[in-house]
């Protein structure tokens, strides 16, 4: 019997679960990461403190612990209408945003101070300076580390399988309970993860070359 063909629907469901988790959490983490990075370089001290606290807290907490908090604690604090999937996305995107924030911030630091000073002397506000002058120039240095962070996110999303979200890793549990060869199951699960991570790498390589051409 063939593990993959016999259970193709199950594999597909798991695969799509991982893709959804990764894509949604990735998109939210990107937006959140850029916003928190902006906080961290802002001239307003409370925003800077908030940004620093966000990064310190989320970057230094094990992801599994964040999942426990999201799935077990938050519903008791009033978020009881959220599904497991939504709570998993919340945990994954907050966690990843802390790392993306730091990658973006290090990119911002590679842009010379004179660029920001020139923008400010023209009368641009802080947000305009960041959006129009600094971030576009930081993008090229920031792309490779962000690509790696999204690959890590795809793999980290497996933890959601342990918290009642159906994704690739849960396929393994279901099938091994049905008595399939565990090595074969793992092989196919691993290949499915590779498809996702190779896709992310390819997208980022494409973006990098495009930016290189556009200088």
């Amino acid at each position: 019997m063939n593990v993959l063909l016999d259970n193709f629907a199950l594999f597909r469901e798991g695969f799509l679960g991982t893709v959804e988790l990764t894509a949604l959490s990735g998109a939210i983490a990107l937006v959140l990461g850029v916003v928190i990075a902006a906080f961290r370089v802002s001239p307003v001290p409370p925003l800077r403190y908030f940004g620093a606290a966000w990064v310190t807290l989320l970057r230094n907490t094990p992801l599994t612990l964040l999942f426990f908090i999201a799935v077990l604690v938050l519903p008791r604090l009033g978020m009881n209408t959220w599904s497991f999937f939504q709570l998993a996305v919340l945990a994954l995107s907050c966690y990843t945003s802390a790392f993306i924030c730091e990658a973006v911030r290090s990119g911002i630091n590679t842009v010379s101070l004179g660029q920001a000073e020139a923008a400010r002397s023209l009368g641009m506000t802080f947000t305009q300076t960041l959006r129009l002058i600094i971030l576009p120039q930081a993008t090229r240095t920031v792309l490779p580390p962000i690509g790696s962070l999204l690959i890590a996110l795809a793999k980290n999303s497996a933890i959601a399988g342990g918290f009642s979200v159906f994704e690739l890793f849960s396929v393994q549990k279901t099938l091994s309970e049905q008595g399939y060869n565990i090595f074969l199951i793992f092989l196919w699960v691993a290949i499915a993860y590779l498809i996702i991570t190779f896709f992310i790498s390819a997208v980022f390589r494409f973006l990098e070359t495009r930016l290189a051409v556009a200088r």
């Binding site: 010379s112 660029q115 020139a118 009368g123 120039q137």
Partner: peptide
């Protein structure tokens, strides 16, 4: 106010992108 005060720097600081 800064928009009303033009500034020219030693290192030009043109927007590179």
């Amino acid at each position: 106010l800064r928009a009303d005060v033009g500034m020219v720097f030693q290192s030009f600081n043109l927007f590179a992108h």
